[in-house]
């Protein structure tokens, strides 16, 4: 089996993640889509690390995980704040700001 298959899987996951951002209305699900994108990236990094025989790629993936964890905290905090004020977690309800 070619290692490229891993990259293909990652690409598909990444695209599904981004489509989630565009299509879903529940902000938490949208956010999960972003997490999926980050995870897909990690798979790419790990696979490239193996191709290059360079463990740095794994370290990069590790950093991404840590950053993603921090991002999740902030993101969920914002979502909760919005939910408390509006009783809705739909991204479409958040559109007071427009021209």
């Amino acid at each position: 089996m070619e290692l490229t298959n891993y990259l293909g899987l990652a690409a598909i996951l990444f695209a599904i993640g981004s489509a989630t951002v565009l299509l879903r209305r529940n902000s938490i699900v949208v956010f999960m889509g972003i997490e999926l994108m980050l995870n897909a990236t990690n798979l790419v990094l790990v696979t490239f690390a193996r191709m290059h025989g360079d463990i740095t790629g794994q370290l990069l993936a590790f950093f991404v995980m840590v950053v993603a964890a921090a991002e999740v905290v902030v993101g969920l905090a914002i979502i909760i704040t919005i939910f408390r004020a509006r009783r809705s977690a739909s991204v479409d309800d958040v559109n007071l700001l427009q021209s």
Partner: peptide, 14 residues
Amino acid sequence: LQSGYVRQYAAQTL
């Protein structure tokens, strides 16, 4: 285009 819908913004980005 500046509709306020964040999903459309993301779509515009992509």
